Amino acid sequence: MTTPTPTDRVRLRLKPEGPHSGYVDGAWWPRSADLTTEIPDLLAALETRIGPVDRVLYKLSEWAHAPAKLPVGTRRIRLDGYRIQPPHTVEVLGFNRNRVVLLVVPPDASPAHAESTMSDAAAPVRTTTIDA
């Protein structure tokens, strides 16, 4: 039996790499509202896309309390919570200035709703706003 890798455990859908289209680059369906538990696997899955991660921006009211810095592997990642962060999003910033903005599907969403939302958010030509 093989041990699942972080990319196997994270529920993530990304648009194909290419010209930016729309506000989000894909969607993430975390299993809980505990950012410190959820973020390590997400960052591991995103490193192939944006390189080493420096910061994660999130909306304060949507997650349990998180520290300002979180040890992930050999690094400490900045977790910056804001009241004005667009709702249901996280923004992941790499050291090399690459970034990914993800629509966050609520952990308690039904599988059917989550799959539909994630597919829509990851559609290559999707240009709608987060509210849509």
Rank of each mutant, 00 (worst) to 15 (best):
R49D: 10
M118I: 02
L60Y: 12
P71K: 06
A66S: 06
H113V: 11
G81L: 13
V100S: 02
T2M: 10
V125E: 11
A64I: 06
G81N: 07
R75K: 07
L70A: 04
L46P: 04
T129L: 09
P106K: 07
W29T: 00
L43D: 13
V105W: 02
D54A: 12
G26V: 02
D25H: 14
V90N: 05
H65S: 13
A122Y: 04
N96V: 15
I130L: 03
S116C: 14
A122W: 03
R78M: 09
P40H: 00
P6M: 03
Y58E: 09
W28L: 02
T128R: 12
G94N: 08
T2W: 12
P40E: 00
P30V: 11
A64R: 08
R76A: 14
P106D: 09
I50V: 14
L42D: 04
S119A: 13
R11Y: 03
P106V: 12
Y23G: 09
I39M: 07
T74C: 11
G22Q: 13
H65D: 15
H65K: 13
R99G: 06
D8L: 03
W63Y: 10
D54F: 12
I39G: 03
A121Q: 00
A33Y: 15
T129K: 11
S61N: 15
S21E: 10
L102E: 03
R55T: 11
P4T: 01
Q85W: 15
M1T: 10
P87Q: 10
H88R: 14
V92L: 00
P16S: 00
L14M: 05
K69R: 07
P19A: 13
D34T: 13
H88S: 08
F95P: 08
R9E: 09
L57Q: 14
N96M: 14
L46Q: 04
G22N: 06
P4D: 01
L35W: 00
H20D: 13
I130G: 01
L35N: 00
Y23I: 08
A44D: 14
A132I: 06
I39R: 00
R11M: 05
A27T: 02
I130P: 01
P71Q: 05
R31A: 09
K69T: 05
A123I: 02
R76S: 08
G51T: 00
E91L: 15
G94L: 05
